[in-house]
Write a protein that binds this DNA or RNA. Structure first.
Lengths: 249, 249
DNA sequence: CACAAGTCAAGAGCGGTGCTCACTTAAGTT
DNA sequence: AACTTAAGTGAGCACCGCTCTTGACTTGTG
């Protein structure tokens, strides 16, 4: 399947548009992404861009999946560069990769995890698969650790048969909660509900921390060393997951 | 200090502009906030609005502190409506208040905690005080619980003298991390570093969870009952904080 | 009580935006 | 060499934030 010169030229122009779009995004944000500016940068009249991208929304979608995949690739690479039996290190690599990518690409990160662009609805068909790569990787990590038997299947400090922080007689929230069963089946998981729940909590906590830092919610001056604070969080979250360094215990 | 009819009229117009701004924000997002649209809605020519608000940015700032205060009031009210000695319930009330406010006002929530509006720098002088109300309330809650002696001053499952998930000989991240000392002094706190660190983790986790839900990152269909999932998270986070229901244990 | 000083609404205009459409040009295909 | 078709053009519509100027109105004071 060799491509004609026309297809070659088209593909290259397309790539150039995406590249310009990324730059525009970094400079002016998602709402400030301008077709005219892209055209200007491309050295072409504004309407010419519409030969390649149907609308501003479509360009946004392309940049969205591009961003998801860039983050996904970064995370995959980071996790893969760690011994496959050291799940604690894998978790830390994943967390650090997310944080560092977010800090390096705040505009793209904001597009992926910030407030949705008003008036724009991400088309699920093209978006969900790349958009779930990081969670999926985390869940697989947990699943692998569970199967390897190195995961405490119990909330630390939680004794079996007693859900802490809950009066006896009160129904435990665990059971009826979000239907983990569906998720577990969809992903062909073996981990029990409790572990899955912890995984989701850790997932949200990770992105909460990165959000605060990337979006500047920490207030700059407050914490002298955000990287160290993040490492602290990674430790705590690993502990919550039940992950331990190999060799410990 | 009675106000002249002029002042009365001006104050009312000002309030109306803010109200319209909120509506515009909800409909078109922060970047789509339009002075002309506000003027149109106000039944006035576009430039007239500049008699009341110096610029689009100033209107944004007004809406920002307005939002922070609305959330702060909601949280304060929710926490205050709970027995002052039931810290676990106070925590849950705080968390639920944040979530419910965010879901009820996604656009405003997005303005406060989403990606920063490109090209807009929130003026710290007017913004930091209202912007820190929720964290401050959480920290006070933890401080109070600590002083009342109902807070485990230890990570659950963590035995003293041993930092879990960390090889012996490796320096503990706790000590040099973000300079908690400065924070503790600034807020006149008594809680030890470890508790403060957990507080920050729980804070980020709370907003991470709410972000995901408000910004639609959960993917709708995935979790049948997000409210139940959130309750689960509240439970887990309370446990991490070391909060227990009174009467338990 | 009149009039200067001050306040504020209004309009025109500048340079920007997304997008459409009729059109020409130039390149690839047959 | 002839033909098809993709690529690029430029005018145009309706919108945007913001500035500058004009003119009407209110108020305080000599």
């Amino acid at each position: 399947m060799t491509q004609t010169p026309r297809e070659r030229a088209r593909a290259q122009t397309m790539a150039e548009i995406l590249s310009i779009g990324r730059a525009q995004l970094a400079e002016h944000g998602a709402a400030g992404l301008s077709m005219r500016a892209v055209a200007r940068e491309l050295g072409v009249v504004s309407s010419a861009v519409y030969r390649y991208v149907a609308s501003r929304d479509e360009l946004l979608t392309l940049l969205l999946v591009d961003g998801y995949n860039a983050l996904g690739d970064t995370v995959d690479q980071a996790v893969d560069s760690v011994p496959s039996d050291d799940f604690s290190a894998q978790w830390r690599a994943l967390g650090r990769a997310v944080r560092e990518w977010g800090l390096a690409e705040p505009a793209r990160y904001g597009l992926l995890f910030g407030a949705p662009v008003p008036g724009y609805e991400a088309p699920a068909a093209q978006t969900t698969e790349p958009g779930t790569r990081v969670v999926l990787r985390l869940v697989r990590l947990i699943e692998d650790a569970y199967k390897a038997g190195v995961l405490d299947d119990q909330m630390p400090g939680q004794t079996p048969g007693q859900t802490p922080g809950r009066r006896p007689g009160q129904a435990p929230a665990q059971a009826p909660a979000a239907n983990f069963a569906a998720v577990r089946e969809e992903l062909a998981l073996e981990v029990p509900d409790a572990v899955l729940a912890r995984g989701i909590l850790v997932w949200t906590a990770l992105f909460g921390a990165v959000n605060f830092e990337v979006f500047g919610q920490y207030g700059a001056a407050t914490f002298a060393d955000p990287a160290a604070l993040f490492e602290l969080h990674l430790d705590s979250l690993a502990h919550i997951l039940g992950l331990r360094h190999p060799g410990t215990r």
